[in-house]
Design a protein around this nucleic acid. Structure first.
Length: 440
DNA sequence: TCTGGGGTCCTAGGACCC
DNA sequence: TCTGGGGTCCTAGGACCC
């Protein structure tokens, strides 16, 4: 930006500017935090069951290993280049993420956490120069205090800030911060950018746009937004507005209350019987219900799903079914009983089930709701008793070693649902007292 | 042999009502 | 049995994201 300091437009005060703070290969960076010896080595993080690649260091990207690649396809490569592999350690990543977000919140007024490794910062009434300096300041703080490298994109809309952060990440001369204000620079970059790489335009939409000869972001920028809205959706129209730098279009909800809680897993060894599926699903349900109580929320709708593997020639079956409650609840007993009943209705024998899951949705913060004329009110005592029991359950399960199960979860739940394969797991450096590294 | 998990938003279409 | 249109609400499923 130094070279554009003479540009008169930079004296302008902008009403609103977005900074996208994006952690560089976040999971890998988290692992490296406690293993500085891995700084220049190829490192990757694997999905559940150590199935496929979900995070790559730049050295791994340079080997041409794509996101989501199954491990068995690249085994030789991993050995040949002595790639260091980790099972995913989400407790660690979430903890580091929280530290970063709290740090940002301590430095600026408006932070919108977008994902585990990204946050938008909103600045109001600033000059482009001020926005750029603020971005540099935040980058330095995160890297010095937490130790995770970040890239920051600065622009007048979220979509442009995303594009700017990608520039910051991929062009070394920018040193991790890029402010995309100059119209000529914008046009130049949008010309280079394939339409499918824009935030919000996935594979399907990209194919359809290309059929209309819209191949680059610049072509979308100049396209007839109203016609495309008619033909596709309001979402695409918003994206076009954002490309043009109009803000407040993709507004994130200011106080996002979570809308659903999901718990699902693939099974390393396929499940066949209703009993095994039931025990797996009940374990997921118990986890999801505990999460629900942690968030102090209640659910009114429970959905389960089961399916065979996409990747085999075997006969396929997939099904999902929901049930809604008259009263919002967070009681594991009610949720588990709903799950077993739903399963008996969709289970079909003779299939090799590869994946199952549960979703709790229609979430509310209280159990109070409009009284249903035909449903008798639960007594206050009933509710209290349920709350107390669930609190006790959560305390027991949180305490180290103790695990309390319902009968439906089966005798040895860790053998099925929780029986995920994580041979390469790093220690829980920050969240488990026993595994705090000895740094001195 | 071995192929992730957890979310949000939008739309079409059905059910239901007047 | 014939015959209408318009509105709302809900849900399933698609598409996208990280």
């Amino acid at each position: 930006m130094a070279q554009s300091a003479h540009n008169p437009q930079h004296a302008v005060v902008l009403s609103k500017v977005y900074l996208l703070i994006d952690c560089n290969n976040f999971f890998v960076s988290c692992e490296r935090l406690f293993r500085p010896d891995l700084l220049k080595r190829p490192v990757l993080v694997l999905s559940n069951n150590d199935g496929c690649v979900i995070a790559r260091s730049p050295e791994v990207k340079a080997l041409g290993i794509k996101m989501g690649t199954p491990v068995f396809e690249i085994k030789d490569l991993l050995v040949r280049y002595r790639v260091v592999c980790f099972s995913s350690n989400f407790n660690l990543y979430l903890d580091i993420s929280n530290r970063i977000m709290r740090l940002l919140e301590s430095m600026v007024a408006e932070v919108l956490v977008y994902s585990v490794d990204e946050a938008f910062v909103v600045l109001r009434k600033v000059t482009p120069q001020e926005a750029f300096s603020q971005a540099c300041r935040l980058k330095k703080a995160v890297e010095r205090t937490i130790g995770i490298p970040v890239s920051i994109g600065v622009a007048t809309s979220k979509t442009l800030a995303k594009i700017a952060s990608h520039q910051a990440k991929t062009r070394p001369e920018l040193q991790g911060v890029y402010a995309l204000f100059d119209p000529a620079e914008q046009i130049h970059i949008l010309h280079q950018l394939p339409v499918g790489e824009i935030w919000g335009i996935g594979r399907r939409l990209s194919e359809k746009l290309q059929a209309l000869h819209i191949n680059s972001a610049a072509q979308l920028y100049t396209a007839d937004a109203t016609a495309l809205k008619q033909r596709f959706s309001i979402t695409l129209w918003r994206t076009i507005q954002e490309l043009r730098g109009n803000d407040e279009i993709k507004e994130l909800p200011p106080e996002h209350q979570q809308h659903s809680i999901m718990w699902s897993r693939s099974f390393r060894d396929k499940l066949h019987t209703k009993e095994d599926l039931s025990s797996a699903l009940c374990n997921f349900a118990a986890k999801a219900a505990q999460r629900l109580r942690e968030l102090k929320l209640y659910t009114r709708l429970v959905t389960i799903s089961i399916r065979t593997s996409y990747f085999t020639q075997d006969k396929q079956y997939h099904a999902a079914l929901s049930v809604s409650f008259d009263y919002p609840t967070s009681d594991s007993r009610i949720i588990l009983s709903a799950v077993t009943q739903l399963l008996s209705r969709i289970y079909r024998p003779g299939f090799a089930y590869a994946k199952a899951g549960i979703v709790l949705s229609d979430l509310t913060t209280t159990r109070t709701h409009q009284n249903d004329l035909f449903v008798p009110s639960l007594s206050r005592n009933d509710l209290l008793r349920s709350d107390n029991l669930m609190t006790l359950l959560d305390e027991l399960n949180t305490r180290s070693g103790a695990k309390v199960f319902f009968g439906a979860q089966g005798k040895a739940p860790q053998q099925t649902s929780a029986g995920s394969d994580k041979r390469l797991l790093s220690p829980e450096y920050t969240t488990n007292f026993k595994e705090v590294p000895d740094l001195f």
